[in-house]
Simulated scan of single mutants.
Amino acid sequence: MGFHTFDPESADRLEDESRYRYLSREELVGALDLDSESGSSVADLGSGTGFYTDDVAPFAGDLRAVDVQAEMHDLYREKGVPENVELVTADIGDLPFGDGELDAAFSTMTFHEFASEESLAEVARTLRDGARFVVADWSANGSGDGGPPVEERYSRDEAVELLEDAGFEIRRADERPETCFVVADR
């Protein structure tokens, strides 16, 4: 759908720990299933100010915080960026990574901003065979009280269909009161 991106003027809302009610750091890290000893190469797609990036960084060898808005990276720098995190300003449809370069990727509350056939094919291209892609996003079945307008969201079933069409194998797909959570393998 990709109607709009998050307004950097409201970026302080991205650092609100109440976000964990939608996705805990433990659930995200567990779903990524990273092998910390092998030094996994991971990308946070739509990283914003790095709220969830910071949670995953201790478990990754290197983590690329990808956001289309350079202003979000500026805010992340002010907060402090972990040593193993590289800030990458790029559109998800045109990632500056080689074929199969990533061991995992995740998107937290940004899937609705970039999900398209082209963008998901690009994500798939950058992930090695068997790599994990974790998506937590606002659901079209939610009330719309938090997050973007309902008409800009995908339901769990729509997200699953998009991911399967891009060649992902779905391991888990949950519909929650306001969000959906999908774990897929390349």
Rank of each mutant, 00 (worst) to 15 (best):
F168V: 01
R171L: 14
V182K: 00
A166I: 00
V81W: 03
L32E: 07
D44V: 06
T110C: 09
D54I: 15
D54C: 14
D54S: 14
A70R: 15
D185K: 08
S40N: 05
V88T: 10
R25E: 13
V182D: 04
V150C: 03
A166Y: 01
E27H: 04
D145H: 01
K79A: 13
R21S: 04
H73N: 04
E178P: 01
V123I: 12
D33L: 02
F133Y: 09
T126K: 08
Y154Q: 03
S119Q: 08
S36W: 03
V68H: 05
D165G: 03
S18N: 10
A136S: 10
W138I: 00
A173W: 10
D16E: 12
T53D: 03
H4I: 03
N84M: 11
D55H: 13
G147N: 00
T108I: 15
E164T: 02
A31Q: 02
H112F: 12
R21T: 07
D74V: 06
G100N: 13
A60W: 06
R25A: 15
G100K: 09
E178N: 04
E151N: 06
W138N: 01
Y22A: 09
E178M: 03
E71L: 14
V81P: 08
D12Y: 05
V183H: 02
R25H: 13
N84V: 12
R19Y: 03
S10F: 15
R128H: 08
D103Y: 13
S24N: 11
P8I: 06
F51N: 10
D55S: 15
D67P: 12
G48A: 04
R125W: 05
D7Q: 05
S119M: 05
D174F: 10
L28H: 10
V66N: 08
S36L: 06
E71Y: 12
D129V: 10
V134C: 01
R176Q: 12
C180F: 14
E164Y: 01
Y154S: 03
D55M: 14
D137Y: 00
E158S: 05
E158G: 07
L87N: 01
R13V: 13
D74H: 14
D62W: 08
S155E: 01
R64A: 15
L28E: 07
A43T: 07
E178Q: 11
T53F: 09
A131S: 09
V135T: 06
V160S: 02
W138Y: 02
A136N: 12
F6A: 02
A173K: 06
